[in-house]
Write a protein that binds this DNA or RNA. Structure first.
Lengths: 256, 256
DNA sequence: GCAATAGTGTCTCTCAGACAATATTGC
DNA sequence: GCAATATTGTCTGAGAGACACTATTGC
């Protein structure tokens, strides 16, 4: 028996009028379209991802990436921003939001053909208060345990893995790592971001030379803080740079 | 008046059965899902893209990227490979195929809500015979003129621009440039690929040192050819390398 | 003073870019 | 031989990685 979405295909297409705009072919399969979000932040000295507990079937009570169905007249990025606001209470759009990939395996959702456009979002901790409205529950989960065999709903483990790899690759050659930082931050705090995203140690002295030497990456404020202890560190803001040239090199993973 | 696709939403969802699989919410908007292809090749000393002339409304007689609607039970990449075969007579899958991005602006298709997943495909000239079956006409067009103000159908000019930028960026840090090459090729032929994709000149000597020095990028065959004139050049095959490390650096565009 | 962290300087090695020199073909 | 292209080699400067050293705070 065809799925409900499939059975409505012929009806959908034939109801379409003629004219200069043309009409969709009669055998076009309608699908449901959703957006899902890989929202990452750095908190508690860990890279964490926002998960929501599903309140309905399928996968009821399982953890999943936040997301929802695209509404009529709504663009994809628009839907992503709306879902983000609804599920985190975010006032402003996230510091960074980009389309990740689209997942459309025919059997990825038991309810029928549901295709989802995944987005990657990065935000500092302070801008993600989590005031969920349409999620039964939501929480931050360290990425080291989120993807594990435990099993997120649908194909969300694969989406999360792709999002993580994108984030890890992107901070190499772009300036998006500052999207994790608050308005004013020190070089050491930015370095901690890189270390936690990459799970590797970076030399503080070489890192300092690199980031302060890249034009328009960081803008010095002239002010200092001692919140990290030791000698006062200068505070910086995000600069206008979007690409890093030359790139920041990701250290080869240490096996021991 | 709601579009046909939208009006079928309630019907679609309500027809869905209950049970452990759950059902789609009643207000989900069904959309039509298509794939579009940015198929690039190098021929006639130019980077060219495959275009098809539309035989039906909307945009009848305008040039467009090849593509079509996803079929029931078909995965996205599967649909892309099928369309590629149908519109080019390609026997084998292309040398390189990757998902590019998804375009879903609500008004991008006058027939209703059509969301398209764009793919980027790279192939050598010999594997793209163009034996179109369901396209009224198709041709290769230099990318320098294809995107111009002339106007491709739908938002295909934007998709093409994104595909070009992806291809230009990707040959920097990955080994996909060999996807444009025939089975056996010389270093000079590979260099010509880079020059045409980037629209810039590369030093033959430094290029040779770079590509032959990168492990597993090229596999020497021990055979030689004089088809390019001058001293015989050694023939190589694609190696197993997928990433280039360090990357091949794209020269800064020359303004004069 | 001591611990802790910030920031600067130095050395070496890799590699890109410029370009000289040599090798091997067709004519 | 000459033109054309392939391939190797040499020099230089930018920049990454390792790490010594100095600077400035809290205690």
């Amino acid at each position: 028996m065809p799925s409900p979405l499939e059975s409505s295909a012929a009806t959908t297409a034939h109801a379409n009028g003629g004219g200069a705009a043309g009409r969709l072919p009669p055998d076009v399969v309608p699908v449901a379209l959703s957006v899902d979000l890989v929202l990452l932040t750095v908190r508690e000295e860990q890279l964490q991802v926002l998960l929501v507990r599903r309140g309905i079937e399928p996968y009821r009570d399982r953890w999943a990436l936040p997301g929802g169905f695209v509404r009529p007249g709504e663009d994809l990025a628009e839907a992503a921003v709306r879902e983000l606001a609804e599920e985190t209470g975010l006032r402003h759009p996230p510091a960074h939001l980009e389309q990740l990939a689209t997942y459309g395996a025919p059997d990825r959702d038991p309810r029928g053909r549901v295709v989802t456009v995944a987005f990657l979002a990065l935000a500092p901790q302070s801008r993600t208060p989590i005031a969920g409205t349409d999620a039964a529950a939501s929480r931050w989960e360290p990425v080291s345990t989120a993807g594990g065999g435990s099993g997120l709903a649908f194909d969300h483990a694969a989406i999360l893995a792709d999002g993580l790899e994108r984030a890890r690759a992107k901070i190499e050659y772009s300036a998006v790592a500052t999207a994790f930082c608050e308005g004013e931050f020190t070089v050491a705090e930015l370095r901690r971001i890189y270390e936690l995203v990459w799970s590797s140690r970076l030399d503080p002295r070489n890192f300092h030379r690199k980031v302060t030497g890249t034009a328009d990456f960081l803008v010095p404020t002239g002010r200092f803080t001692t919140r990290d202890g030791g000698r006062p560190a200068e505070l910086y803001r995000r600069g206008d740079a979007t690409v890093l040239h030359p790139a920041m090199l990701r250290p080869v993973p240490r096996l021991p």
